[in-house]
Design a protein around this nucleic acid. Sequence first.
DNA 1: TTGATATTGATAATGAGTTTCATTCGCTGT
DNA 2: ACAGCGAATGAAACTCATTATCAATATCAA
Lengths: 147, 147
Amino acid sequence: MSHNTKDIHSIFSQYLSEQNLRMTTQRELILKTFCKQKKHVTAEQLYEILKKADPTIGHATVYRTMKLLTEAGIARELNFGEGSIRYEPDTSKEHHDHLVCVKCGENIEFLDEEIENLQKRVVSKYGYQLVDHSLNLYGICPKCQKG
Amino acid sequence: MSHNTKDIHSIFSQYLSEQNLRMTTQRELILKTFCKQKKHVTAEQLYEILKKADPTIGHATVYRTMKLLTEAGIARELNFGEGSIRYEPDTSKEHHDHLVCVKCGENIEFLDEEIENLQKRVVSKYGYQLVDHSLNLYGICPKCQKG
DNA sequence: TTGATATTGATAATGAGTTTCATTCGCTGT
DNA sequence: ACAGCGAATGAAACTCATTATCAATATCAA
């Protein structure tokens, strides 16, 4: 258990006030709902879920808020080349990469220190200053191999 | 020098005839123009370049042809999370990863055997069958660090 | 409570890419 | 060379994810 919802709420509140932005009922609801998700969701999927709790919520508000959560370090953007961005909670400070099943979409998070270190080696070899990186492995999971 | 244009042209021709598709003047022009590019281009950028040679060429034709070139193993799709797909020549059989400067877009291709092997290890650890993978490192290049 | 201003939701707009469809083109058989 | 059939093209409409606009509303510090 890294963070509970209360922690995250105050992290967000703090981020907002630092930026002279306001905590609103919509932002609270979006944050709470996002944190409840077990899978990586797109903004669109989250919007669909949110509509059940608040049918008046706007499309744009969800997209805007996910941007904010990303900036606040609460969410992280994932791009699996599907044409839309997925979000995962960024509560764990630990970075990790993704192993995605191309059949069923199952998604495994992994961390390999050796790979991480080798990446740093490559970057410094070229004199770059590392900002970010994304490693996605695409494969067929054991279940789908049988099916 | 791995392939010259003539080789690639016949690879494409062969692919097309295998699929009962036809070589056309547009496809020839697109192939030729794509091969001339030194940087990874998006379909849109290529379309802009192509219009100079043939102002009547259609938007859709470029997109369709890049799809075909990808299927034929002549082009490879790159996704740097910019919202559009870039294409690189896939003439070298060798796989490589990318180190991209987030400021100027400079793009270095690298291959690290150790990283490749470690990836395979991760995949097999979870019982997956590897289909594809993408590793992109984002950083600031030496030039942009000074500027 | 009030006022300045951030936020919202509806809607229009954007940008990448795809689909539709009537017209044109490439190829194969004559 | 010619006809005919199916593939290919370009224009335009469409999709889908996301962003911008803007009038109405909500937040919060004073």
